[in-house]
Amino acid sequence: MSAEDLDKLFRDKLQNRPVTPGNDVWERMQARMQANGQQQVPNPFLAPTPVEEKEERKPIRMWYYSAAAAVTMLLSVGLWVNRENIDPLQPSGSVATVEQQRTVTPAAQAPATEVTPAPAQTVEPSFNSATPAAPAEAAQAQALASASTKERQQVTSVTRKATGTTSAQTRTTEPTTVKMVSEPVLMAATTPVKKQEETKTSSEPASLEIIVKLDNAQATTTLASASTKVDHTPQEEETPTGSGRVLKGILKQVKNLKEGEKVDLQELGITKHTYALETHIGNKKITKTIEL
């Protein structure tokens, strides 16, 4: 018997030999087709392509969203962390205006000592202030007043930061607080860390007197003294920098950026700072301007 015969024998007998399947097979198949859902039921008019398109498009859209979110977050965090160091973005031209140097005499402290029972000798006599304008002068005196009450040790520097709009208001309110409350109110700047740095750098040479001027309508007075200790505890801030407000400001600036408008970092409480260092060695006067 050849192989072909064998094949033919089986083919003839078995090729079209029907076997009746179980009675429940049809029902089982119906149940499974329904379980598979309406989509599994053949619908020749429904091409499978739209589904595939949707599946393809979805991850791409998600990718765009997440990228946008990541960029926004990085931008916000970057601005927030570096809000004090972004100053060079807007170079200041007002350094030249800060020229007038005035030494605060004890007379300037007189009103301060009258207001408070604290002794006047706590204020260092060699207090230098650089104020560009007359209003700042008043602020200076007031800052001294508060300083004399608050800081029991030698106060080396009191920095007052006043933006144009708020300065007038604070100037009038603050003396009253000094008067009313026996507990002194410290006029503290919004950026104490920076002030401490200033003091540190300026206090390194023991006998040198270095005047640090900070522009931006801010009257910065720094006293250089060998043994100084600064006690900055901001109790009242002139410009409220609550996190909510800052976040709002950042979002606003991001929106500006998106719409191609000008980004104003000053609105975020980020102000440009230009420091003018001035010192006298012998007869020589050395000035240095630093932009931070």
Binding site: R32, M33, V41
Partner: peptide, 16 residues
């Protein structure tokens, strides 16, 4: 075999 039969018929309906 019945399982295959069911799956086969479902494939036929699906891809007819």
């Amino acid at each position: 075999a019945e399982e295959v039969l069911i799956n086969g018929f479902m494939k036929v309906f699906q891809h007819v």
